[in-house]
Design a protein around this nucleic acid. Structure first.
Lengths: 246, 246
DNA sequence: TTGCTCCTCACGTCACGTGAGGTGGC
DNA sequence: TTGCTCCTCACGTCACGTGAGGTGGC
C-alpha cells in the first residue's frame, strides 16, 4: 500500500537502502503493481524497522539475515550481545568526546597522568626542554614496548628524582650537552655517576635515564650520544670505569 | 624511535591504518632506517593520537587533513561542532538501544503510542483481526504520507470510536465481510452509514474508515472492496445513496 | 636457521551513494 | 505537458582488511 519512496521517508532511510536490503535477502521483495513499482504493506514496514534497528546497532547485514532464521532463544541471546556491544560503543564514544575536549584545550595525553606530571616536574627542577623531550621519548618507548613493566620502572625513576643529590647528577648531565669533549669536568661527572649508580643498583651496568632491560637503553643511548660530543665522551668514560672496576 | 608495529599497538590501531594515514597525507612519513623501516618519534605518536581521536569521533579523513592547516580559531569552532555531533550520535545510539530492547520483548512500535493503544482497543471492542490489520495499514499510510495532518485525523477517528452507536456501525461493517452480496441486511447498513455520516460530516462524501483528503481513501477502499464481495456491494450502495440525495 | 616484522603493490569488502538512460503517474 | 517518482544496471566511495611476494632483524 506504500511506494518505496513513501516507505523510505516513513522509516527514515534512502530508497537505495531498501533495494540493497532486497538484494541481500534481508527484506523480501514485495508485490509489484502493473507498472512494475514495488508496493509495500504494514508488515513490510514493521520488518524494515526491525532490520534498521539492528543495522543502526552496528550488526552486519549478513548477520541480520541469518538472524531471521534463528530460534527465539538464539535471537534473544544475540540481542543481549548486541545490547552489551552498544553499551561499550556508547562508552567509547564518551571517552572519545573527553579526549576531544582535552584536544580543544591543548591537552593531549600521551602517557599516564603520573608520568605527564613527572615530566612537568622536570621543568620546574631546571631541566632543559631537550632533556624533557628525551625523557618523553624514553617513557613513550618503554610504555609502547613493555606496558607490563613500565609502571614499576617509572616508580623507580620517580624515586630517583625525589632525591636532590641524585637529581643533581642528572642536571649536570643535562648541562654537559654543550661542553667540549675534552672538558675536565666530564671525567669528574662520570665518576659521580658510577659511584651513585653502584650505590643504588650494585654492579649492574645501568646508566642514568636507562630503565628497561632489553634493547631500549642502547637505542636511547645511541640517540643521546648522537646529540652531543660531550655526552658521547661521558658515555665512554662511564662505560670504561664501570667495566674496569667490575 | 618506534617501529610501525610498536606505534600501532601503542595507539591501538592497525599498521595498515597508519600507512593509510601516510598515503592520505594526515601523518607525515617518518624517517626510514638503513633497511627501509619507518622510525617514529614521540611527536609522531602524539600526532597519531590526535588524528585517531578525530577519526573515532566520526570526522572524515579528508576533513582531518584540512583541519591540520586550519587556524586555532577555525580548529576550535570545528571541534565544538564535532562535539555536538558526538552528543547527537550518542543519543541516537541510546534510542537504538531502547528500540532494540523493545524488539527483544516483542514490542515493535510501528505507529505513535496513542495509535497503537487505539488499535489494541479495537480488539477489546470485538473487531476482527482482519479489520485491525486494515486499520493498521490505513494509519501507517496516513502517517507515512501526511505526517502533519495525521494527528488531527487520528483524534477525530478516536472520538468516533468513543461513541458506542457509531462504533456499532463499524462493527457491523466488519461483520458484513462474509455476507452474500445480495443479503438484505446490506442496504439497511448502507442507510445507517449514510445517515450517521451526514450527521457528523454534513454532505461531504466521507466513508467510514477513510480520513485523509487525497488519494488515500480511494486506495484503501479499493483494497477493502477487493477483500469481500459484500463490502464491495456496501460501498456501491453507500456511494449511490450519498450522491442521489445531494 | 627460524619465526616475526617490515616493505610495496593490488585487489577485496562493507554499506551504501551517484549517475545513466529510460518509463510511469498526476 | 511537466515535474516527480520509479525502474535497472554499473560504477564510485570511504576506511580500511587481506593476501602476494619479497626482504630484514634477533
Amino acid at each position: 500500500v506504500l511506494s518505496i519512496g513513501q516507505l523510505a521517508r516513513y522509516v527514515g532511510v534512502s530508497t537505495k537502502t531498501i533495494r540493497v536490503y532486497h538484494d541481500k535477502g534481508l527484506l523480501p521483495e514485495p508485490h509489484r503493481d502493473r507498472s512494475g513499482y514495488r508496493r509495500y504493506t504494514a508488515q513490510d514496514a514493521a520488518e524494515l524497522i526491525k532490520i534498521r534497528t539492528l543495522a543502526e546497532a552496528g550488526v552486519p547485514l549478513a548477520r541480520v539475515r541469518t538472524l531471521r532464521a534463528a530460534t527465539a532463544d538464539e535471537f534473544r541471546t544475540t540481542l543481549s550481545e548486541i545490547d552489551n556491544d552498544l553499551t561499550a560503543r556508547i562508552d567509547r564514544l564518551r571517552t572519545t568526546q573527553h579526549r576531544l575536549r582535552d584536544l580543544a584545550t591543548g591537552k593531549t595525553r600521551l602517557l599516564p597522568a603520573d608520568v605527564e606530571r613527572y615530566l612537568d616536574q622536570l621543568r620546574s627542577y631546571g631541566f632543559s626542554s631537550r632533556w624533557i623531550g628525551l625523557q618523553t621519548d624514553l617513557w613513550l618507548l618503554v610504555y609502547a614496548t613493555h606496558p607490563e613493566a613500565a609502571a614499576d620502572l617509572f616508580q623507580d625513576q620517580s624515586h630517583v628524582m625525589d632525591d636532590p643529590e641524585l637529581r643533581d647528577i642528572f642536571l649536570d648531565y643535562d648541562r654537559a650537552h654543550d661542553l667540549a669533549p675534552t672538558d675536565p669536568r666530564l671525567p669528574k661527572l662520570a665518576s659521580r655517576i658510577v659511584r651513585e649508580t653502584r650505590r643504588r643498583y650494585g654492579t649492574v651496568d645501568q646508566l642514568p635515564g636507562q630503565a628497561a632491560g632489553s634493547a631500549i637503553p642502547a637505542l636511547i643511548q645511541d640517540t643521546v650520544n648522537a646529540m652531543s660530543p660531550a655526552w658521547q665522551r661521558l658515555d665512554t668514560l662511564v662505560r670504561t670505569e664501570l667495566t674496569r672496576n667490575d
